[in-house]
Design a protein around this nucleic acid. Structure first.
Lengths: 161, 161
DNA sequence: CGTGAAAAGGTTTATTC
DNA sequence: GAATAAACCTTTTCACG
């Protein structure tokens, strides 16, 4: 389940997250190694789950998803049963792209991607009919300034342990 | 710059975002078409920018990124010059994974991924020393309930136009 | 553990229907 | 447009240093 990740692993991971369509030779060249060792490391990192889904990022607007909301949720319910139902509702709804349980005053934050404001309202009505929530604030995005899945692996210290 | 996207395109996009490592034959089989037409559509969608970066999603915790913050920012400054400096600061900092300009009371929301709380503080101090902001609230994630880049393409109506 | 070559499989182009 | 085939390139395995 856990792996030692060294500097070479990090270089390879940085290349993969930058462009996963590169050939092994290209990656090997960029990280200063060669095909077979790079291939063995990638395999190990996939097996360990460090490398997850391989995907393409799509242009949401071109596909008709023109509204992004961040939703701040406060609840008074904290029983296990309520929480399970709430988590399941979030996981089952494909318009929820991110959901986090928070420390402090606000209990949850969601990122919700929908076609338009009406679709958000439909989502909101469906959610509050499924699970009780105390207070909901929706923040509407006017402009996506930045959006990336990349972790800053280069900037990292050579790792302790 | 714009493309007509039909049901077959959407099926192909859904497959690609689910698993971009699939071969053309696999994708063709799943969407009920064959190699050449699928290849031509993918090419067209890439050229049009509907298909963007091909990447792998990494396990942030395994790589030492153990803290995620959502940062709510209010500012009193709204001049073009200030905004340019602020946007540049956000785009240049790799720990900022998302940044949106919002409608309403709160002006910006950020998603910031860092090694630990101290790294967040360093980020925060650096940011406020670069650009003036009026009020900053940091929400600390305790648990990532869901995180996906996938758009719900299946659930979509067959498209008008 | 890395190198290099061989086998298997995939992508891309060109041709034909 | 779609199918087929050929050329080319990559991945994956394997034997050897």
């Amino acid at each position: 389940m856990s792996v030692r990740i060294d500097g070479m692993d990090r270089k390879i991971l940085a290349e993969l997250q930058r462009d996963a369509s590169q050939s092994l030779d290209e990656i090997a060249g960029r990280v200063g190694s060669s095909k077979t060792p790079v291939w063995n490391r990638i395999r190990k990192l996939k097996a360990a789950g460090v490398i997850g889904q391989q995907t393409v990022l799509l242009d949401a607007e071109a596909l008709g998803f023109e509204a992004t909301f961040f939703v701040l949720i406060r609840t008074s319910e904290h029983e296990a049963e309520w929480q399970m139902a709430f988590l399941k509702a979030l996981r089952d709804r494909p318009e929820v792209q991110e959901a986090h349980r928070l420390a402090g005053d606000i209990d949850y934050i969601l990122k919700v991607r929908v076609r338009n404001a009406r679709a958000y309202d439909a989502f909101y009505q469906a959610l509050i009919s499924e699970v009780r929530v105390h207070n909901v604030t929706a923040l509407l995005s006017m402009e996506e300034i930045k959006s990336t899945t990349m972790l800053p692996l280069e900037a990292q210290a050579p790792a302790e342990g």
